[in-house]
Amino acid sequence: MTAPVVESVQAPLRVGDKLSPQNFGPFDLLRLARYAEVSGDKNPIHLDADLARQAGLAAPPVQGMLLMSAFAPALAAWRPDLTLQRLSAKFLRPVLAGESIAVSGRVANVAMDDGLRVTLRLMAHNAQREIVVLAEAVLGEAG
């Protein structure tokens, strides 16, 4: 079976095309505090090392939404001609204050469905190469 190929403003997209790893972080405590302020996420576990320890963590965990927010600029840098329409993520492992992530992905589907729609499977790894976030994104042509 031949994989679908769809012409876009940039290069043609194919199933299997890769989103090369892009690094984000390190997410230090100051960054976590700033994100708490702009996001309104006042969950103290992200800022209080004692509370994090009580929850079984060695250090405060980075807000999941701060990690998830890395996908949008990564995708925009990859294909600025496309617009992110859907994004879902599962947070599999905590990323602790001071750590970094690498975001990468692969095209899972390319369709012409009332306009170009590109589905990507995404992931974020920690420094130990463990998957910490699994995500899926759908991009379409900019309206």
Partner: peptide, 11 residues
């Protein structure tokens, strides 16, 4: 304490 397990946005 709440721990974020998953999140989705559909525009």
């Amino acid at each position: 304490v709440p721990i974020h397990e998953s999140q989705s946005f559909d525009y």
